[in-house]
Design a protein around this nucleic acid. Sequence first.
DNA 1: TATTATTGCGTTATGTTATATCATATCTTA
DNA 2: TAAGATATGATATAACATAACGCAATAATA
Lengths: 157, 157
Amino acid sequence: MPDDIDRIIQKSYEACASAGVKLTDKRKNVLMVLLGSSTPLSAYEIVERYKTQFSETLPVMSIYRMLDFLIQEKLVHKLETASQYMSCAHIACEHQHETPQFLICDRCGSVKEIAIKKHIMTELERSIQSTGFTLAHQQLELHGVCKHCQDDSVSAN
Amino acid sequence: MPDDIDRIIQKSYEACASAGVKLTDKRKNVLMVLLGSSTPLSAYEIVERYKTQFSETLPVMSIYRMLDFLIQEKLVHKLETASQYMSCAHIACEHQHETPQFLICDRCGSVKEIAIKKHIMTELERSIQSTGFTLAHQQLELHGVCKHCQDDSVSAN
DNA sequence: TATTATTGCGTTATGTTATATCATATCTTA
DNA sequence: TAAGATATGATATAACATAACGCAATAATA
């Protein structure tokens, strides 16, 4: 896992470099916090973890700014329905990013980022455009219960 | 328009009656506030409008409770991505409610509630289920720019 | 109709998420 | 190294939301 993280960080540096922006130490650390979490985190939770992991207390304001940066560079997603932030699952992938679709487990809070099939998205878009509406950032957030939690509740019976 | 509202309120009473719950005066008034607004409102905005329309100041806490009730009875939707509330566009319709899909204009704040095509939703669901995930409340919120605002920005050029 | 239970709502306090504003520090580059 | 740009810190406050407790109105039932 740490190997993975190193590789993702490496890729992140490259992405920022080619966009002409800088992945500062603190921005990188915020990204590391998110990479190290199995669930998305709120800005305030990031403050907590940052303190634990890096022995430094950052003001929330700074965290929000760094999140803005990371979101801009598509290294982090914001889950609007949960007010939480998570690292993009595809930083180290070679392929282009597609429409992100998030499956949010309302029981354990875990989130799975899956790519929505192109043709479904195309149809969706078409049905939207017929109303004269133009989509901005396409992102779907769907709430439910993940496989793991379903299994748990079965075995609990 | 007032006729429409009367009819919707009437329908709402019936829906609550058959669900065995009560649409109190205040709950009804909150619904009226939402019905009278062309855009979704935050809980705090509802407090303001309630004061104006009904000359009575309700605590936010109460508004939240009434909203919870109205949402439960499917008379009101919460837009998670905007933290705002709006009356369901289909209270007075006869047909069953389908997956609500909201097109939220990031420029003027207006929201259009459209029904997503059944087969698109089915496909979406299938691709989700293949991951073991079970959907809870299906609701899509899509952000963009509405036709009206697009036209405005064209004529502004 | 008196008794009790339930429901609806008010009140107060506090938690959570987010942004505005101005100050300071650090990095670039001429 | 000075000038300007970028990044971060500090403080305050706004906006959204819930917890906990209690009272009052209504409903259920003896």
